[in-house]
Every structure is written in C-alpha cells, then in structure tokens.
Amino acid sequence: MKTQIRSRKDRECYPFILPAFIYLLVVVGYPIVYNFVLSFKNTNVKNLASGSSVFIGFQNYKELFTDPTFLLILRNTFIFTIACLAFQFTIGFLFALFFYKKFTFAGPIRGMILVSYMIPMSVTGLLGQNIFLNTGLINDLLSRIGITGPEWLTQTSTALIGVIIMNNWVGIPFNMLLLISGLSNVPQEVYESSSIDGATKVQQFFQITLPLMKDAIFAVLMLGFIYTFRAFDLMYIMTAGGPLNSTDVLATYSYTLSFTQYQFSKGSAVAVVLFLCLLIVGLFYLRLIVKGEEDT
C-alpha cells in the first residue's frame, strides 16, 4: 500500500524533469549522434545543398591520422592540457593550503582572485596578446632583470607557452577554490590527535591531508582535464592557432575545418577524436560522482 502511494507521488515529478531532459536530448543528444554520422560522410559546402554526400567509412579518420598537421595539433592539445594541469593543480593546491589558514585577509582575497575565472576567456586572450607583445609587459619585466625576452607569440617555439601561462591565470584560482572546499571536508580532529602524537606539518600533509582528499583531488584533476582539453576561446583570440598551427588544438582545428574550409565532415571527425579523449577521462569522473550519489 505504502509503495503504491509513493510511486504515485513520484509520478508528479515528471512534468518538472522531462522538459529539461527532452531539451537536452534534442539540443545535445541529437547533435552528437549527427556528428558521428557526419564524420563518416563526405559532407562539404558543395554537396550540402544538393544533399548528395555519401558515406565513405573511416576515410576522414584515415586522412587525419596520416596528416602531419593533425598529429601536430593532437600533440599540442596534450602538451597544453598536461602543462596546464600540472601548474594549475600544484600552484592551486599551494594557494588552497595557504588561503585555508585563518587570517584577516584570507576570505576577501581568495574571492578577489577568482575574478579572472569569471571574465570572458576571449578577453583573457586579448590581454595575453597584449602582454606577450615583443615590447609588452612580460618582456619589459624580463628586461628589468637582465633577460631579453623572446618574441613570444610570433615564433612557433614559444607561442604555446604564452597560451599556457594565460590559461593558468584562470586555472589556478579555480583549482584553489575546489581544493579549499576539499580541505574543508577533512575533519579537524584528525589533525589535533596527530599533532599530539608528534607529527610534523609535512608529515600531516602527506599522511593525513592527501589521503583524505583523494576523491577531491581526483575530481579536480578530471574536471581540469575536461575543461582544458576542450579549450577554444583562448587560442582563437590570442593567436588564432598560429603561428604555423603551433597553438592550434583539436577544438580550434575542428572549427577551422568546418567553418573556414567548409569541410563539415572532416571537422566533425576531429570533434569525435576530441570527444573520445574526453570520454575516457569523463567515465572515471562520472563513476566517482554516481558512486557518491549512491552513498547519500
């Protein structure tokens, strides 16, 4: 009897949930399927209107993986992502430990530095363009300590470094924020009892903080990977992928193929590669979250 009432009551919720659910199926689900289909065809601007595109199997993928430009771009994407993750996580963690301390300015300042995360990434790109000019802020600061800075964004060997630095300006505060919330979930009593046992701060960090924050750290790294791997706005504005594709990543390359060369199918194939890379990492992340959901 009780379960019957319960299930009838539960049915009330469908009018609330279904509109958003259907919205996402149509606006997100359908394009994904369509994108996969496209990537196996030869749709371009010429045969789009006539609808005469045909299935060509894995041809697009074969062409991509034998194209040195694409392989360079794949490499760029991984270098960008891993470099960003390494710095933003390490520095973000140090900041989190620092701002988790209780001192007068801790609250206001940790909020303040988050502003770089809120502003449009395209403006971050614009700023990056300016401060990495040959006569810009970075080289001016370097010259004050006797270093002649490189022509950051106009040579292939340094352009990606400039983009990585700008991305860290955004990523560090964000990692800090998430790690602070992870730190606040570590029960304070554990520290108290261990300091009675004579553990040093460093020992406490490696033996208590890190293990207890395992899930939070994992989540931060997964999310960081997902957000960084799909980056687009920063490169598009700051360097437009150049010089010579040295800052092109999968997202910008997919855009170029689809919307400046109008090779829609090839652009879709690049998007699929991007998606599959994210999927591998995303599955771990989802398992973590759904597991957490079952615990509550």
Binding site: Y30, P31, Y34, A251, Y255, S258, F264, A271
Partner: peptide, 21 residues
Amino acid sequence: LVFLVSQMLPASLMLTPMYLT
C-alpha cells in the same frame, strides 16, 4: 547521467551538426 554528461561535453562536438540543423 544525462545532466552530468551534457555539462561536460565540448561545444565543438555540437557545433557542426547544430549549424547544419
């Protein structure tokens, strides 16, 4: 799962098919 996944998807994946649609 649908809510979580759609938050993580790259915009690039939706861009070309949506444009055509």
